[in-house]
Design a binder for these strands. Structure first.
Lengths: 231, 231
DNA sequence: TCGATGCTTCGGCTATCATCGAACTATGAA
DNA sequence: TTCATAGTTCGATGATAGCCGAAGCATCGA
């Protein structure tokens, strides 16, 4: 009997590993499509659809239809707060995921956060960009400067003006799990990661579902020349 | 395969209704025995034992052996914070327990919080006691004054000195779910509720498991005379 | 109009897990 | 010692719910 908000239903939603993976994937604040979330959780689209419907009914996520895609985002910052609180409890209880194994250091160094660079190198890159005044950060928003546009065009052949998108900012600060600091997200972050891949500076790990990004020896050197810690 | 704390296991622990009932029962901060928690959750002691073992393994609760009893308490205030956060989400999503039905107003007005009075009348009682200087509240702690002892003896035939208990404070502030303010817990709170029942001022609702407390017409008058809003 | 893609619905399979009866251990009281 | 109470362990049962294959809508591009 008891009265009060029904916690257990909400908690049960988070309690399923597949749904939990989806939610943590959404913790960056970005909206993801149903297919992307399915891949993130490692399940088929049918199953994902069922899960997403439940999460939506539970008020944890909100859909937004965009053409034939369905973007989902966390319905409220409070949801992210609770997830973070759960992370804290789980971490204190020593319940880390065990399966990551030997790749964990690599994951900390450089990994994909949906479509852009995260981890140690991702944080380092954004720091360097701010030092070089390629971007200006005020609060949560990040803005590309005129010098930044020139830099992108000259050094990386990226046309910043072509990166505007109806539903996504060009630059966005994204909180890094392992570093607890920001790295660069948004269409620019994605475009830069694309360019790194095209130039064969870096490549996503071949293991299916892995988020690890491996830099080549040459790639690491070129990357350091542009975004080195000392510069 | 992602790294990071394993949220879903923790959330799954909260996701079971029986376990969730136990946890919310512990949110008052008091330690309860395994049997009490079993009753609170409406399950048999065997099932409760299994649940409690899981909650302990998950680091959500901590046991303390005391004679042949096993007292459980939340292992950390953070746990209570997360539970409260979940309540907020659940409440916003409109997922209140439905079964309470027409009794909900009654539940708001007066109910049992384990063994003492909660709800509107419970909050009103503590307020009045403070106004009459029967108790002194500093931070979380509440202390019975000399005048309070006299009042208890004269008006309610309660010997305050006999209420000391090894594991439980005489007076304790307990946060009220419906009122978001404190009501009186502790052995004094329990003793007062017992007296109200003996005097037939109030009685627990006959429905099994109900927390509603019904005041008689006379009881309400006598209660108001002692702890009325104007006094 | 015709495919291709993103997503959902339906049906059946399976595994997980909450539940309880019964039996067992441990503490306290007479 | 003997009994009562608190709590646990074990085994069997049953229901819930996650999962995927197949088929069905809806939207976009040509």
């Amino acid at each position: 009997m008891k009265a009060g908000p029904d916690i257990s239903r909400i908690a049960a939603l988070v309690g399923d590993p597949a749904r939990c993976n989806m939610l943590t994937a959404l913790m960056t604040g970005r909206a993801l499509t149903a297919s992307e979330l399915a891949q993130e959780a490692g399940i088929t689209p049918q199953t994902a659809s069922s899960h997403l419907a439940k999460l939506e009914a539970g008020g944890l996520i909100e859909p937004e239809k965009q053409g034939r895609h369905r973007y989902y985002r966390l319905s409220d910052p409070d949801v992210a707060d609770v997830l973070e609180g759960l992370q804290g409890i789980a971490a204190r209880a020593g319940h880390m995921r065990v399966r990551t194994g030997p790749k964990d250091p690599a994951l900390r160094r450089a990994r994909i956060c949906y479509d852009h660079l995260a981890g140690d190198l991702g944080v380092q890159m954004l720091d360097s960009m701010k030092r070089q005044k390629l971007v200006r950060q005020s609060k949560q928003a990040i803005e590309l400067t005129g010098e930044g546009k020139r830099f992108m065009a000259e050094e990386l052949q990226i046309d910043a003006d072509a990166l505007t998108h109806p539903r996504r900012p060009v630059c966005k600060a994204c909180l890094d799990w392992s570093e607890r600091r920001h790295h660069l997200a948004g269409t620019l972050g994605a475009a830069m990661m694309d360019r790194f891949t095209e130039l064969k500076w870096a490549a996503r790990d071949s293991a299916p579902g892995s988020r690890v990004v491996n830099f080549s020896r040459n790639g690491e050197k070129r990357f350091a020349a542009l975004f080195g810690a000392g510069d």
